[in-house]
Amino acid sequence: MFSYNSALMKHKKIHKGEKEFICLQCGKRYRRRIDLAYHVRIHTGEKPFKCLVCGKTFCFKSSLTSHERLHRREKPFGCLECGKNFSQNIHLACHMRIHTGEKPFKCLECGNRFGQSRTLANHMKIHTGEKPFRCLQCGKSFRQTANLSSHMRIHTGEKPFKCLQCGKSFRQRGHLASHVRTHTGEKPFSCLECGKSFSRGSNLARHMQSHRGEKPFKCSHCGKSFCERSKLRTRQQIHPG
């Protein structure tokens, strides 16, 4: 039941799909004036909601509320599959695609599909050749800011990932993970041809070259080729000089 005729008329517009409030900047339409007002902030840059902890500002109160959970370390949205928790519901929704296998974002260039839009955006840089993140030390450029951050540790010498078994430190988390397998003996990368297992994916890739007959490592002295770099080094020791 509706108390006023105006409220009833507004409600009927929902069923009719009427959107009478139009953004003069981009032409997008809305059913409610308040929704248009929120939208206009995207164009004006207005961010009236400010975080009292760090000073960051937001267009919408809901965005501020989500941000404040980071400071309080609240993660109320839990995955029922694996128990991982998130501060925002949208992050949980993205995470769930790992379990469901859903990949709604498709590359129009090569057809590859991705679970997240930002993963697709990063992938597209492969096709465009775009590398917008540049190292100010040596000028090398990267497609992703995470890759630049890892690269910068070469210049700073920082090795934040430490092995709890032996104390050895690494610049990248992936390198630590590979190293830990030397302690555990784990070899998760198996050859489908012969069943041989490896601790690193790169070692499996090199091994697969032997099945395909690939010999990319060529001796500059005698021209003989090898499937592994180590065998090339052994061969080069035979040659004088």
Rank of each mutant, 00 (worst) to 15 (best):
S190W: 06
K187W: 04
E186H: 12
F217H: 12
Q137Y: 06
S117G: 12
F198R: 02
E130V: 06
K162Q: 14
F142M: 08
G213Y: 09
K125L: 12
A121K: 15
N122E: 12
S199K: 05
A205G: 01
V180T: 15
A177I: 05
N203M: 02
L148T: 03
F161V: 07
M124Y: 05
R134E: 13
C163I: 11
F105W: 03
S230N: 13
S230P: 07
F142R: 03
N112L: 05
S225Q: 03
R181V: 01
F105R: 02
R153W: 00
R118G: 04
H183R: 13
K140S: 10
P216I: 08
K162A: 14
S169I: 02
K131H: 11
C166K: 05
N147I: 02
F217R: 02
T184D: 07
H183Q: 06
S199L: 09
A205L: 09
I154N: 03
E193G: 03
T184W: 06
G157N: 13
C138P: 03
Q209P: 14
T145F: 11
H123Y: 01
R113A: 15
F226M: 13
N122S: 10
H127P: 07
R171N: 11
G157D: 14
A205C: 03
E186W: 08
R173F: 04
K218C: 11
S169F: 01
P216G: 08
R118P: 01
C227G: 11
C163R: 09
S190M: 13
G167H: 05
C166Q: 07
H221C: 09
E130R: 08
Q165K: 14
S197P: 00
C107L: 07
C110L: 03
K215L: 07
H127I: 03
G111W: 00
I126Y: 01
S210H: 06
T156K: 12
F217S: 10
